[in-house]
């Protein structure tokens, strides 16, 4: 249980290979977390992050989780909570960090690939997020951290399925938090701007680009104040409002060739 001074003990990361998810987890371990469950499609790729978290002082278990296979999520998440209880206790914080990014501008993308991005980034969040919410409601408390994106504020052609899915994720997280009223469970939506990570390494950076570590420290501050939404960096709140309300010709101008 997260203690009276805001220190969680057990963390579940869906998308255990995500740079942002791992940065948040490392920050939580540095603070207090002693048990971590990392879940990802390819558990072999979790060996390195698991070792790093262990040397930071956490007990770590890895489990298989495929975001696209929504039929499996209820069972996989139940298994993750069981493993967590055997390790250090109820899951205090679950981080939904998995995601895919489009490989090409929308009209050059294959419809199947665009559909996969939408499935993983949106449908996967809906089913696994709901499974986590139900598990946490049954334990009477917990916090779900959902990684949304600035991109969800206004979909742009170069990242269209990704951005559209993030818009859906954002709406789902907000609604889920409302649905969980009275259960002791809360949902925190994180809206980072451009984050330098493995997911974005082949792409041109954007203004106010930030790092996974910076997002992590913003997330921890958000957890401390019980925030429902965290923008990272903070200036993204303003950027988000601007891109959301900007008339389309100006938005096009702002994007330029991006």
């Amino acid at each position: 249980m997260t203690d009276a001074t805001g220190r969680p003990r057990t963390v579940l990361v869906l998308g255990g290979g995500s740079d942002i998810g791992l940065a948040i987890t490392h920050a939580l371990v540095a603070r207090s977390a002693r048990g971590v469950i990392l879940a990802a499609r390819d558990t072999g790729r979790l060996d390195v992050p698991a070792t790093a978290l262990r040397s930071a002082g956490a007990a770590v278990e890895t489990i298989e989780f495929d975001a696209e296979l929504v039929d499996t999520h209820e069972q996989v998440v139940a298994h993750a909570f069981e493993r967590a209880r055997a390790l250090t206790g109820d899951v205090d914080i679950a981080i939904l960090a998995f995601g895919l990014i489009d490989e090409a501008p929308i009209l050059e993308e294959t419809p199947a690939s665009a559909g996969h991005v939408a499935m993983v980034n949106f449908a996967g969040v809906v089913s696994s997020g709901l499974a986590v919410a139900q598990q946490m409601a049954a334990q009477g408390y917990g916090t779900i951290v959902v990684l949304s994106s600035l991109a969800g504020q206004r979909a742009r052609p170069s990242l269209l399925p990704y951005a559209a899915a993030k818009a859906g994720v954002d709406a789902f997280a907000d609604g889920l938090d409302e649905a969980l009223l009275g259960t002791g469970v809360r949902v925190m939506t994180v809206r980072p701007g451009w984050v330098r990570s493995r997911m974005t390494e082949h792409r041109r950076s954007a203004p106010f680009a930030t790092s996974p570590e910076r997002v992590a420290s913003d997330v921890l501050r958000g957890l401390d104040r019980g925030a429902r939404v965290v923008w990272s960096p903070g200036v993204m709140r303003l950027v988000g409002a601007i891109v959301h309300y900007l008339p389309r010709p100006l938005f096009r101008l702002l994007l330029g060739s991006r």
């Binding site: 009276a4 049954a138 009477g140 408390y141 259960t183 002791g184």
Partner: peptide
């Protein structure tokens, strides 16, 4: 949803006197 094992119980958010670490119970 969470199972509610008792017919006469109601779900409440409880804390101790320090008003920290809330959890919901029947």
């Amino acid at each position: 949803m969470a199972d509610d094992p008792t017919s006469n119980g109601t779900r409440h958010r409880l804390t101790g006197w320090g008003r920290t670490t809330p959890s919901v119970a029947t």
